[in-house]
Structures are given as C-alpha cells and as structure tokens.
Amino acid sequence: MQDDRQPILSVRNLKTSFFTDEGIVRAVDGASFEVHLGQTLGIVGESGCGKSVTALSILGIVPRPGRIVEGEILLRRETGNGQSQEVALTSLGDSSSEMRSIRGAEIALVFQEPMTSLSPVHTIGNQIIGAARLHRKLTKQEASELAVELLSLVGIPRAEGAIDAYPFQLSGGLRQRALIALALSCDPRLLIADEPTTALDVTTQAQILDLLRSLQEQNGMAIMLITHDMGVIAEMADQVVVMYLGRVVEEGPVDTVFGESKHPYTQSLLRSIPSIHSTPKVQLPTITGTIPHPYNRPAGCPFHPRCPDVMPGVCDHHEPELQSVGDEHLVSCFLYHPVPETSS
C-alpha cells in the first residue's frame, strides 16, 4: 500500500516569470504546497495572483514568453506492484515524451472557460476519444464506448447522442461537464480544476461542485481547485493556499485558515463573503485599493499598500517568509514573526 501521508504532488519554491519587452513579470514567486490523494487543495486569490500560472507550470505548459525559473515540482508516480517513485517534473523537458505521458494521464486540467475550452468544430465525442486514445491503447470502438460512459458519469443526459454534439449545441453547464469527462478520460490521479464554476450560474455551480466531489469519492483522485471564491473553497477544500501577487501568504487546513486566519489579506477576503450573520443593508467590507500592476510590484511585502495592519518601515522594506504559526498552519507576515536583523 502506498503511504497516504506522502503527497502525490509537491511544489517547492516555484517561481515562474514572464519575460516581456516591458519587463519581467513574476507571475508565481516562490509558491510551495502539497497535494494528497483523495483530498482537495484549494488555491484562492484575486485574479492575477498567479493561480492559473501555477496550474500551467505544474503541467509544463506555461506559454511563451513565460518559463519556470526556479523551484521543484515533484510528482509521485505509481510504478506498479504498490511501489511509487517521485519524478521531478521541472527536470523533464516540456515537450518530452515522458512529460506528455504525464499530462492528461496522471494530471488532467479542467480549464476555466467552458465556452471556449473545447474546439468549436469538433464533436464532443471526437475530442474525448482523441484524448483517451493518446494514453490508452483503445480501438476507436472502445474509446467511443468509454466516451459515452464518461459522459453519463458526469451526468450528461442521453450520452449516446451527446458524443455527436458540437460544443455550441450544449449549455454552459453541460459543456463544463463534457470538459470534466474529457479530463477524466485517462483516469488521472490529480485533477486541476481552474475556476471550473466561475462562468456558470449559481445552481449549475453547485451541481458541478457536487459532481467533482462525488467523482473524488469514487476514484480517490486528488483535486487541486483554483478559484477566487472563498465560498467554493469552504465547501470543497481540505487544505487551502492563499496567494497574493504570485506568493503564498497563508496555508493550512481549511478549518484553521477559515477559523483562525492570521494574514490580513486572508482576513479581508473572508470579511468580504456575505454571511448569514451579517447586518442587512450594510455594505460588505472590501479590500481597499487594487492589485498593483505586475510591472510595478511594491517593495517588501507585496500586500503592504493595501494592508490595514501595515507597519511602516517594516512591511515596505523587508519581505516576509512563509513560517509556521501552528499545526500545519503557515503564514507569511511580520505580525507573527520577527523582522530580520539585516536591513537591505
């Protein structure tokens, strides 16, 4: 038996930058976290904080002019007879055959836009069959049967007919289900869902989340759920990583992060969720300011210009590091650990 304590994926100090004419954008700037089988890791943050780039980095498909500049991504692969072996994805070439045998087969992606994440001129069935036959030795007939099976698994009615449908013939919710079916076609052990429900209406959102949860219960895969929606995290995640401007600012089990949030950014995010206890007709608190332009990162703690607890002379001069504040609970903030002696 494989040790459940060992993560299927560990990301260590990942740094991914985009080298544009205007300057370097550090989209991910030192992210570390682990994903375990049968568990859901939620990554949360405002748009532009590097969540999606993290997902693309794991799959080794960061688009030009971006690339991983530092850090390690380790995937635990099964080698048969209960053994497993760690593979450093960062040391594989992006287009190497080993990397391609991992993409789609071990790690699958459900991308954020159901409207455009499927080719508009190929049938759903064609795309699922194509993906399935990439990694599995299947005849066309078998692959087609698998596609029908997958489509009914994800709850698409009349799946036999749906494989001949084009994406534009399906509603947004059905399209997202088809996309999940596509991701499941090779039975991945890690599913990365990047804002899978953002473009959907609220009832459909709930259905898709239910679907993901039941799929996880059935096949025990790990899910990495990327979202900006704290509500979705609360409902789905076991572990949470809060990101801001490419950095992890807080990390821990979902109850701890929600119940005893430490970082001012996490606290502000949580305050901005409407709650059943909040006073009616009072505006929800918002985080002041906007995310700075990535070319114009603030010095020191990236959150300091918007932080309600900013300590002048400290937060704008020194960069905090992710440190433990309790059981599996990590925070990167000078409110909780000492300022380094050496000044820069």
């Binding site: 693309l56 699958a108 993906a131």
Partner: peptide
C-alpha cells in the same frame, strides 16, 4: 483555451496544432 485543454491532455504540439 481549447488549445490549452488539448495541450494539457498530453497531445504533442504538432498533432495538436494540426488537429484543432
């Protein structure tokens, strides 16, 4: 995005570009 979907499914760049 559908290109990213196909890429994430592990298609090789050449067949991916030609197919989709």
């Amino acid at each position: 995005p559908y290109v990213i979907t196909a890429r994430a499914a592990g298609m090789s760049e050449r067949s991916l570009v030609l197919k989709y």
